[in-house]
Simulated assay, not measured.
Amino acid sequence: MAARVDHLVTSGTFSLDGGTWEVDNNVWIVGDDTEAVVIDAAHDAAAIEAALGGRRLVAIVSTHGHDDHVDAAPALAAATGAPVLLHPDDLMLWKQKHPGTDPDGALADGQVITVAGTDLTVLHTPGHSPGAVCLYAPGLGTVFSGDTLFQGGPGATGRSYSDFPTIIDSIRERLLTLPPETVVRTGHGDSTTIGAEAPHLQEWIARGH
């Protein structure tokens, strides 16, 4: 059976730099009826475990270390035995939420995670955070962009550890070079495509947010 993409939305808070905001997060599950990978264990480990439906969890992949994307990761790992993977450049963000602990493994640019016969290639896309990554699944015609690229523009860069020129470089060099029909499944909000976003790069640069 070919891999499929399941989706649920979980709700909670995002806290950084002394502020806290209510957020809804996309949780993506890639797999078949036997095994799966979770991309961003946000807010509600029980809901994510229920969505897995008893499938073997291969890994919990964190697109970045902001607390709304990793807050449920340790509980989900404890419940399933799956390792939590994070790019090491975001360890300082992880430790703000989970002090005294470390993820189980490190993500690296070009690393391939295979689930249900489908390859997810790690693309290091810093900017929203230093260790932000996207996961490209050419076999599914999709990229999981975390908070790097949204419908309508790049992820936020107004808080600690983020940088606007860096996120623009990441999007230009790592994402807009993907086939235009590639579906962009984002960390929050609606999906889009590379082809829909690519024409607006210069507008984003001019806007400079």
Rank of each mutant, 00 (worst) to 15 (best):
S11V: 08
L201C: 01
G117W: 06
L120R: 11
V115A: 05
I48R: 07
G110S: 08
V133K: 05
D169G: 06
E173A: 06
H66S: 13
T186Y: 03
A198Q: 10
G81C: 04
T177M: 03
E22N: 15
A3D: 06
R174E: 05
D6H: 11
S11N: 14
I113C: 10
L135P: 05
T63F: 10
H188P: 02
A36G: 13
G105I: 04
T192Y: 06
H128P: 02
E197C: 01
G12N: 08
D119G: 03
I168K: 04
D190H: 13
G117C: 01
L86R: 07
R56L: 08
A156H: 14
T114D: 09
V58S: 05
P88D: 02
G31F: 09
G158L: 04
Q202R: 11
L201V: 01
I171Q: 01
S162H: 01
D17K: 09
G195M: 00
P74C: 10
G139P: 02
A75V: 09
T182I: 00
G158A: 13
A42P: 12
Y136N: 06
S129Q: 12
V9M: 12
A3L: 03
D40V: 01
F14Q: 06
T177H: 02
D102M: 12
Q111A: 14
H69Y: 03
D190P: 15
G155A: 13
S15T: 12
A108Q: 03
V9D: 06
C134Y: 04
E203M: 11
P138G: 09
R174W: 02
T125N: 05
Q96N: 08
H66T: 10
G131T: 12
S160H: 09
A46D: 15
I168M: 14
V5D: 05
V61M: 05
N26C: 06
H87G: 06
S11H: 15
V115F: 12
Q111F: 10
P83H: 10
A46V: 15
D68Y: 09
T63C: 13
A2N: 13
W94Y: 11
I113M: 08
L178H: 05
T192L: 01
L178D: 11
A108G: 08
W28S: 02
T34C: 04
G110T: 02
G81E: 00
T166W: 02
A50D: 14
E49Q: 15
V37H: 10
A42L: 00
D67K: 00
V61Y: 05
G158Q: 09
M92F: 10
I194M: 03
I48S: 08
H209R: 14
W28L: 15
R172H: 14
E203W: 07
G12F: 11
A198I: 00
S170C: 02
L85E: 12
I48D: 10
A137L: 01
A77H: 02
A59D: 11
P199M: 09
T125Q: 03
P103L: 07
H188E: 15
P99W: 12
G105N: 01
E173L: 07
P88Y: 08
G187C: 11
G195F: 09
D104R: 13
V143K: 00
S11K: 15
L76Y: 04
D89Q: 14
